[in-house]
Design a protein around this nucleic acid. Sequence first.
DNA 1: CCGGATCCGCACAGATACTG
DNA 2: CAGTATCTGTGCGGATCCGG
Lengths: 137, 137
Amino acid sequence: MSVAHTEVTPQAPGPCGDEDCGIRDVLDRLGDKWTVLVMVELSKGVRRFRELHRAIPGISQRMLTLTTRRLCRDGLVERTAYPTIPPQVEYRLTPVGRSLAETIERLADWSREHKDAMAAARERWDAAYPGEASEPR
Amino acid sequence: MSVAHTEVTPQAPGPCGDEDCGIRDVLDRLGDKWTVLVMVELSKGVRRFRELHRAIPGISQRMLTLTTRRLCRDGLVERTAYPTIPPQVEYRLTPVGRSLAETIERLADWSREHKDAMAAARERWDAAYPGEASEPR
DNA sequence: CCGGATCCGCACAGATACTG
DNA sequence: CAGTATCTGTGCGGATCCGG
């Protein structure tokens, strides 16, 4: 999600008072383009950097580095570097990371169940309002 | 999230073959800055445009319009406009939208359970690597 | 093999002013 | 009240080159 842009809500003062505060930082992490894909791949087992890179077509080395580092920083992924030559680095989910991966899987379940309904709704909407075909997204 | 930028994966050919394809378009919607907040607010009941606007501090009229319209387009929110004067527009979740709201609530549960652990992990990481304090996020 | 550093373009958010 | 129209800036993400 290239989500958190200008920090309108630096930390607490914003939309809080509700119970949605907690979910923001999680979605700020899941919202970007690659985090979920990395999590899903790592939920299948330990992966080396290059394995991740190949398993996720389209990601650049830079974005994979940034994504894995953020996940490490949040304690969701553990990084193990062997000082061999050539270098070898392994990534694996931490217990907390695994629990998040399971929660993500629930979301994926919902998606699979309702993606047809959503596609149908979009088709109906686009048929009803053909003017702004490409505008909303 | 300002997530889907350049369409590296126009539709299907990308990371698919896995089972993560389904979750992408859901997260592309949840990932942006406001959608989840709107969903959470609407999960409390029917809301008028201005009520939403006040309930979500920091959102601009434009972003609220775009967010609600996308949700309508996806069949998650229903919009009812009364041609009175002044105009009056009501937004409410559809059944599909409510089921997504429940799933979001699970994510929020996870967030509340683990946010302390994540904060602690970040503190440890930042203490260990003080160099790139602000860089990753 | 893994990652750091740098440059750049573009999509999206925000602000403001205006309309039915 | 509920949007629409337009302009502008920002920061994510991609590409590329370099280093250990």
